[in-house]
Amino acid sequence: MLTRLDGCKGCTESVRVTPEKLERLIEIAIRGRETAADQDYMARMEQCQSCNALQYETTCRHCGCLVAVRAKLAESTCPFPTGSRWS
């Protein structure tokens, strides 16, 4: 039986993603899509890492996405409710 974690209605321990799996998911997500420049990606990730909505060091509480995947895609925006935290 999986136990729900504080802060997320539907998440359980099983949502934790290993660094290797995260890299693979990024590879799959960016196939054939425009990616953010490395500098933009790093700036986005810095914002996400300092955001209080980051869960499990990988997941956005506002949309449920893996922030590394979202930050890598050029057309993505930050889903923060009061406006994007990505400059």
Rank of each mutant, 00 (worst) to 15 (best):
M1N: 03
M1H: 05
R4T: 08
R4E: 06
L5K: 05
L5P: 00
L5I: 14
L5F: 05
G7L: 04
G10V: 04
E13W: 04
S14N: 11
V15M: 03
R16L: 07
R16E: 09
R16Q: 09
V17E: 04
V17N: 01
T18C: 02
P19W: 01
E20Y: 02
E20G: 02
K21E: 14
K21R: 13
L22D: 06
E23T: 12
R24P: 00
L25S: 06
L25H: 06
I26Q: 04
I26F: 03
E27G: 14
E27N: 13
E27A: 15
I30A: 01
R31K: 15
G32I: 02
G32D: 04
G32W: 05
R33P: 00
R33D: 01
T35A: 05
T35D: 01
T35G: 04
T35R: 08
A36M: 02
A37L: 10
A37S: 14
D38C: 01
Q39T: 10
Q39P: 00
Q39A: 14
Q39N: 07
Y41L: 11
Y41E: 07
M42H: 11
M42S: 10
A43Q: 10
R44I: 00
M45Y: 00
M45F: 01
E46P: 01
E46F: 07
Q47M: 12
C48R: 01
N52M: 09
A53C: 10
Q55W: 01
Y56R: 09
E57I: 01
T58P: 02
T58V: 12
C60D: 12
C60H: 08
R61V: 02
H62W: 15
C63R: 04
C63K: 06
C63H: 06
G64S: 06
C65M: 11
C65G: 11
L66I: 14
L66C: 03
V67H: 07
A68C: 11
A68N: 13
A68L: 08
R70F: 06
R70M: 09
R70T: 08
A71Y: 08
K72G: 08
K72R: 15
K72E: 09
L73F: 03
E75K: 12
E75T: 11
E75D: 15
T77D: 14
T77M: 10
C78A: 11
P79S: 13
P79L: 08
P79A: 11
P79Q: 07
P79W: 05
F80G: 00
F80Q: 13
F80K: 12
F80Y: 15
T82R: 13
T82D: 15
G83S: 11
G83A: 12
S84C: 14
R85G: 11
R85L: 15
R85N: 09
S87V: 08
